[in-house]
Write a protein that binds this DNA or RNA. Structure first.
Lengths: 230, 230
DNA sequence: GCAAAAGTGTTCGGGCTACACCCATGA
DNA sequence: TCATGGGTGTAGCCCGAACACTTTTGC
């Protein structure tokens, strides 16, 4: 079945490494695992697996997510391929960098701990295996870019969230603070948030109104060219 | 030398396909070749080759450029990986999409014709082999994105160029027209163009002043966050 | 009553948009 | 002298940035 012409060429090991972002309410964190085989045994690494012959890279990424967090239909995006022939001392491995955005719940926590995996704050990344620190840096850069063009931040928040929560998320993504009046004005001006009657009283006595992301309105907005520069 | 753990996994064919943009003064064009082997024999396709075991994808892209245009040190960028297991009927090939920006001269023309390759206007793309039309679409989308963040347009122009030329390039990239007063104001406001004493008289009787791109000033600008939205 | 977070309006300046006419020159 | 493309200025508007006080309520 393989084309004759193709047979003269060599194959390559192709892997996916996934930077799995989640939001604690205060910080952006990613999942790291303790590598349990050589090379790199005992070092911190991104969850990753090899591509199977009959799956696309996107299916492969879903497989990583399923294995390490139990989640399906996660939002993710490929952002860069790392192909330095010497990047992995064990062999020539080309790896595709994906980032995923997840909401953490107890099921996820359980699954993650089964894999001896841990969350680490982006602001306190340890030294990672091989070129994984670069992969993380690049993932964050791509996420920052993405956030300006699509309201992907909602992937990291519960279905109902408050505006101060949303602002803290954006502050975590950009590592800077925003003026709360301007922030609120800007997100509401996009008209993709629906205010609910309920309030969230977890973080203040007064309580903050909950909002829901309105996908229909967003799709209409996207046609006109979404823009969310803060 | 291969890590023992890795040996249980399968390899994949990994290729690079390159969308090679150039600018005629009026239109954006890319290089296409007539495929001369199966599968896809006789169809229009992007220039592409398989990754060799000891090279990075970036080196592989330079090799494509060298082979098809004779050029070295070309500006290029990876933009997406295409990994649908069925995208190539000859076998399972994962391909990395790169785009390159080149200036065409007579040497390039000669080299390109040796490969039975041709230039095609983006606005008149023929039906391409496999998923190559999608690859081209995505390359253009990425180029449009890139142009807002870096002055890569200069890679497509001769060293000395006029502002009307630059405007035509941006119009070709975005498939829309700009007001010439506003365009000039905007590019000059970035202060990365150096006006020369000479004029170009090719396209008008009055002649248009030539400008040169000032890399030093650009690097200073980049630190502050380059932005070129038109 | 006080601490702690939520919520709200206004002013200013810079940049984008839209728009019309004169200039230089070769033919 | 005329046709062709190069070059210039201004006014209005919108948006982003900066900034301080009131509200609610649990303790």
């Amino acid at each position: 079945m393989t084309s004759k012409y193709y047979q003269q060429f060599k194959h390559t090991y192709l892997a996916v490494d996934c930077v799995t972002f989640c939001f604690t309410g205060e910080d952006l964190e990613i999942i790291l695992i303790k590598r349990d085989f050589e090379p790199g045994y005992g070092e911190w690494a991104l969850p990753g697996i090899f591509l199977e012959p009959d799956e696309s890279l996107e299916e492969c990424t879903q497989r990583i997510m399923k294995r390490f967090t139990g989640l399906e239909n996660v939002f993710f995006e490929q952002f860069h391929i790392f192909s330095d022939p010497k990047r992995d001392p064990g062999d020539r491995i080309v790896t595709v960098g994906f980032y995923a955005l997840i909401k953490v719940d107890n099921n996820v926590k359980k699954k993650v701990s089964e894999h001896k995996a841990y969350w680490y704050k982006l602001s306190r990344m340890p030294k990672l295996m091989f070129d994984h620190n670069q992969i993380v840096d690049r993932a964050l850069e791509s996420l920052r870019q993405k956030v300006k063009q699509q309201p992907v931040g909602f992937e990291l928040l519960p279905k109902k969230f408050t505006i101060p929560q949303l602002q803290k998320l954006y502050e975590a993504i950009y590592s800077r603070s925003f003026d709360k009046r301007n922030f609120r004005k800007k997100v509401l001006s996009l008209k993709v948030l629906e205010q609910l009657a309920e309030k969230d009283k977890e973080s203040s006595k007064k309580g903050a109104f909950l909002y829901r992301f309105d996908k229909k309105k967003y799709l209409a907005l996207q046609k006109k060219g979404y823009n969310f520069e803060i």
